[in-house]
């Protein structure tokens, strides 16, 4: 029983990380139809920004406080990168989806290589607050505290994004844009500006995901964002390409399946069963992937 509880919580924690990584991807894809391969670089940038900030702040501050500042910096860096990438690289290729994908692919190659050149290919250890590396005993299960943090942050992000979509004018434009972009443009609304904002939001979410993933992994490395990105892609596809709630559900399912299969079968089976899950979803419900509402 305590084993199962442990697996459920760690699985949920993993799912929370997947959601953090996938939410920005899903939002961008849903509105703009851009498959953002550079999302992994956004995450890596966030992770390195957080790591550098934590190293630069006076060491007398507690690790938790430095991490909090690092998270804020990572979110800001992610947002700025997202903004710049959209304005400089994505916007000129408006409606040329394949070229947009190609540009983000080039960006992901160059970004990882740049990080590798500056900070080296080896993982650099990241400081973790003592509380987050400890455990809490619930019903006889020793649950790692950091998972609760991930779950809480993911829930906050989900609630925040849903509220943004539902109750603000920007959200209204985004939802309408996902449904029928041409019509929104015809009504005289500046969709272009919305794209930029959505990209910045996606970048901010990616920066947050990156810094939390570096806490989860205990280190930062150039390839980190890319490895998380693959699971984020799977989550986005299973979640219905562009639906935020679908993405959240898919992230939880993927995280749980991975964790449970890794424990009850063999290590590594979990990663494979995620792909199997994707194949099953495709075979049984291919129509659910043709796009969705935000």
């Amino acid at each position: 029983m305590s084993d199962l509880l442990l697996l459920l919580v760690t699985g949920l924690g993993l799912g929370a990380l997947y959601f953090l990584a996938a939410s920005g991807l899903s939002l961008i894809y849903g509105l703009m139809g851009v498959l953002n391969f550079a999302h992994g670089v956004f995450m890596t940038a966030g992770a390195y920004a957080g790591w550098l900030t934590m190293g630069d702040l006076p060491q007398s501050l507690p690790v938790g406080a430095r991490l909090a500042v690092g998270v804020v910096v990572a979110i800001a860096v992610g947002a700025v990168i997202g903004l710049v990438v959209e304005v400089v690289l994505i916007r000129p290729l408006y409606r040329h989806h394949i070229q947009q994908v190609l540009v983000t692919v080039g960006l992901s190659l160059a970004g990882v290589a740049a990080a590798q050149g500056i900070w080296g290919a080896d993982p650099r250890p990241v400081e973790t607050p003592t509380w987050m590396s400890g455990t809490t005993v619930v019903l006889g299960a020793r649950l790692p505290n950091d998972r609760f943090v991930y779950i809480a942050v993911a829930l906050l992000l989900l609630a925040g994004l849903l509220a943004l979509l539902r109750y603000t004018r920007l959200g209204l434009v985004i939802r309408a844009g996902v449904e029928n972009r041409t019509m929104v443009e015809a009504l005289g609304i500046d969709v272009q500006r919305t794209f930029t904002i959505v990209f910045a939001i996606g970048g901010a979410a990616a920066g947050l995901a990156g810094v939390l993933y570096s806490q989860y992994a205990g280190a930062v490395s150039p390839g980190q964002g890319g490895s998380l990105l693959i699971y984020a892609f799977i989550v986005v596809v299973i979640g219905g390409m562009g639906s935020l709630t679908g993405t959240a559900v898919a992230a939880v399912v993927v995280g749980l399946v991975q964790q449970l299969a890794n424990y009850y079968a063999a290590s590594g089976v979990g990663d494979l069963s995620v792909v199997l899950l994707l194949a099953l979803v495709l075979l049984l419900r291919p129509s659910s992937l043709k796009g969705a509402t935000a």
Binding site: L89, L102, V103, V105, G106, L107, S108, L109, A110, G111, V112, A113, A114, Q116, G117
Partner: peptide, 12 residues
């Protein structure tokens, strides 16, 4: 010094 950086930029 990273070949992939040059190739990535060239690609874009």
């Amino acid at each position: 010094s990273q070949p992939l950086f040059i190739l990535g930029v060239l690609f874009i």
